[in-house]
Simulated scan of single mutants.
Amino acid sequence: MAKQTLMWLQKTPWFACIASASTYFVGSPSTIFREMASEWQGWKGLKEWKDLDARVTFAAQSDSTGHIDLIVELAGQDYDSHLRVVLQYEAGQLESMANEILQLLG
């Protein structure tokens, strides 16, 4: 498995944070987006991807009305600083999102 180092930038109206992540051992984060798209009608529990050092974490959950919460957590170099952002999407957005992430990250 080829190792890829990513720099993830998360911006909201209130915060901006950058964290580095490696795909070493865990694979590309595009897998969680592909799983969400293939299960667009919803799933039980939490889907999660995080890099080996847990500097970047994606977690996703769906509800019964077609809404998806994507929780992005970034850890600072000291591992004590964290940013947690919840992004909300509609199930109909998942396919195009997964395709774009796959093109970007492989």
Rank of each mutant, 00 (worst) to 15 (best):
M36W: 08
M7V: 05
C17I: 04
E73W: 01
G27W: 12
W49F: 05
I18A: 13
R55S: 14
F33M: 05
F33Q: 03
L102K: 11
Q61M: 06
R34D: 14
F15D: 12
G42A: 07
I71L: 09
F33V: 01
L9E: 15
F25I: 05
R55V: 01
V26G: 00
Q88T: 14
K44S: 03
I18C: 11
Q41I: 09
K44L: 01
F15E: 14
D69G: 03
Q4M: 03
L70K: 07
F33L: 07
G92K: 14
A19D: 07
E90C: 04
T12A: 04
L104C: 02
P13W: 02
W43H: 10
H82I: 13
T5S: 07
L74D: 12
A54H: 13
P29Q: 11
S62W: 07
A59L: 03
L87F: 12
I18T: 10
R55N: 15
M97G: 06
I101A: 02
C17Y: 15
V72F: 02
P13E: 15
F15R: 06
L102Y: 09
A91S: 14
D51Q: 01
I101D: 04
P29L: 03
V56P: 09
S38V: 02
G106T: 08
S22A: 01
W43T: 02
S38W: 05
G92T: 11
Q77D: 10
M36E: 02
L70N: 09
L104R: 08
S20A: 07
G92A: 13
L74A: 07
K3I: 12
E100R: 04
H82V: 14
L87Y: 08
K44C: 00
V26N: 07
P13V: 00
T12H: 09
L74H: 05
A21M: 11
T31R: 09
D51T: 08
M36I: 01
M1E: 09
Q4V: 13
T12S: 13
L83A: 15
I71K: 09
E48I: 06
S28K: 05
Y89C: 00
D78F: 01
Q93A: 12
Q61C: 04
A19C: 08
F15C: 02
Q103F: 00
A75E: 09
S38R: 15
T31M: 06
